[in-house]
Design a protein around this nucleic acid. Structure first.
Lengths: 341, 341
DNA sequence: CGGAGGATGGCAATCGTTTGCCACCTCTTG
DNA sequence: CAAGAGGTGGCAAACGATTGCCATCCTCCG
């Protein structure tokens, strides 16, 4: 069968057989020499490696995947590629994956749980595993999926599914203490998407602190997490009459800041705003945003490490199931003392 | 050979043979029914499709790739995943690729030409094509690469390689006219990385306008295109004594803005700043950045379309070799009239 | 009524690699 | 010296699809 050879170079790509022929050994020996070095005589291995280098052999990952089941590809699912939060994640995963010789497949789930399962199911066989940054799936569906394909989640805690969690809830405590120490008593939590796990965790944390200080936090929202929701969110916050708010994430917080500026509400003199994540832009918006700095890139790296260690089923079947990453409060210009009026 | 079946589900995944068995036809017929509908009897095709649906058949892309040579994967190479400019590109490519049923491989070349060729060469066989956003390769290397693997570049013009070009140079004219109309006469161009093609194009455009108005633009730089270069760039600009500057890209421009703020140089009263691209953040930095708004996402989409149409070698061997996308000037707060002092 | 030709489906080779199993050789050891 | 053990390497069967080629059957036309 004369295949349609779609790449320009006239010469057929070098295969394991070419090397075998060149060395006078069987293809199987070449395969072993390259992947399972202990299995062949050091001398022949040396010869084979030399020949491979000489011929510029590049293994065909398709063929390898077909026979071994390992594809060398890991998918990273994000709910929206344009959300800067994921830039950090991608950066982290990219680094680790490349270092380990894996390819990174970027998948945008467009905030849809259905699309998420569908895509993952379709690609199941072409993937060695997946990292779910911000899955919108119900716990049950997620657990089920994890039986089909090795999974690690980021910011999502489901029993039985390894995860990397950024401990923003703990940070919420810091943020609240910060605001309270500045004299604020009426504080709002601006909620992100309702089905978002981190959103719920943050809200619970906010309630905790509130209770501890015998205060009540107002919840406004939910809002989709994008700058576009800023105006609505800002107006809602103003209606509540609070003097400070903690916002689900920086994207939304920045949107709020913009709206407040339009409405000539001074920040922080009239309203203090705290964000979450410390994304690109949080430091140069106006005023610079006080926020909970999350180790986003590290989260990506850790998630990859966890996934990879699960795949290397050579040793330790019991790796840590969940890693918690600490955050810290970064105080910038969007928070200040309560102005007694 | 009992393969290590690494995915939890006990039941072996459904193959084309299962369908064939279920329908009482040969595997080849199933293959044709699914990929080459005209080739089989509509009645049997119907039966086969029903069975496939019933059994939830998902084609194994590895196997398909091995035999057909088509992998269904397109790589998108960016020089730095954390550069917001690429968010837009990725968004665009993502959309189009998904619509066409392709998978998107994200590759970060870390601004290194060597890494770029190496990775591309390694993955050559697992790719149907690649999109190079911001290649750092010399023209010659790029042309050579294009013979091996279908390529489309973004913002890079090399003879023989199809490309999507954002016409920022034309925008530079608008930007310069804008500044000149505001009374500026001494203007600087803040240069990005020296080996960057768009950077050179923008500088040439700047020189053009300057000449037309019998002015001379000062060139400062080069600087790596990141916010980190902001301070150095800002200081360099101040040293030249210009009253306005056009900056290679928004990232750098935002960095400059930050530095100017630190140094208490008022923008635009003392110095006007124009960026390029209109990335995320350009509208909410302080002051909001006047910039050349580029159709970034569209560029990604167009690049994918061009690539895909090249792959579909069914018809028209002569698609357009190069598409030029227009930009426009978006005036915000970072430019203003020259303050006579 | 015979043959041409189109429609339809099956056979089997093939893509490039991995890996279970076996054969062989060389030592070591009782 | 025989037998077991360990180190090496080859054979051949997968993996799951695609596709060239051929066989069959039907239809239509001269």
């Amino acid at each position: 069968m004369p295949r349609a050879h779609q790449f320009g170079s006239a010469d057929r790509p070098v295969t394991i057989n070419d090397i075998a022929a060149a060395c006078g050994v069987a293809a199987s020996t070449v395969s072993r020499a390259l992947n399972n070095p202990g299995r062949v005589n050091p001398a022949t291995r040396e010869r084979i490696e030399a020949a491979a280098r000489e011929l510029r052999y590049v293994p065909n990952s398709q063929a390898r995947a077909l026979s071994s089941g390992r594809t060398g590809a890991i998918a990273v699912l994000v709910s929206d590629v344009t959300n800067p939060f994921y830039f950090g994640v991608l950066r982290g995963t990219q680094q680790q994956l490349k270092a380990a010789g894996y390819a990174q497949l970027l998948i945008d789930t467009e905030d849809s749980g259905e699309l998420e399962v569908e895509l993952l199911h379709k690609m199941r066989r072409s993937l060695d595993g997946a990292i779910l940054a911000a899955s919108r799936l119900p716990d049950k569906a997620l657990a089920k999926l994890a039986e089909d394909i090795p999974l690690v989640t980021i910011n999502r805690n489901v029993r039985g599914v390894p995860s990397t969690i950024i401990d923003t809830p703990a940070g919420i405590h810091q943020a609240a203490e910060h605001l309270i120490s500045l004299g604020h008593r009426r504080i709002a939590y601006v909620s992100g998407p309702e089905r978002s796990w981190p959103n719920e965790a943050r809200w619970r944390a906010a309630q905790d602190v509130a209770a501890r200080h015998r205060l009540t936090f107002t919840r406004v929202g939910p809002f989709p997490s994008g700058r576009g929701s800023g105006p609505a969110a800002a107006d809602a916050v103003l209606n509540t009459g609070v003097t400070a708010c903690i916002v689900f994430n920086d994207l939304l917080a920045i949107g709020i800041l913009q709206r407040l500026r339009e409405r000539r509400v001074r920040v922080p003199e009239e309203l203090s705003v705290v964000g979450c994540d410390d994304i690109f832009g949080a430091d140069f918006c106006h005023p610079p945003l006080t926020t909970l700095t999350a180790p986003i890139e590290q989260a990506g790296r850790v998630a990859v490490s966890m996934l990879l260690s699960r795949l290397d089923r050579t040793t330790a079947p019991t790796a840590r199931q969940s890693v918690m990453l600490p955050v810290h409060l970064t105080v910038r210009g969007s928070t200040g003392p309560l102005l007694s009026s």
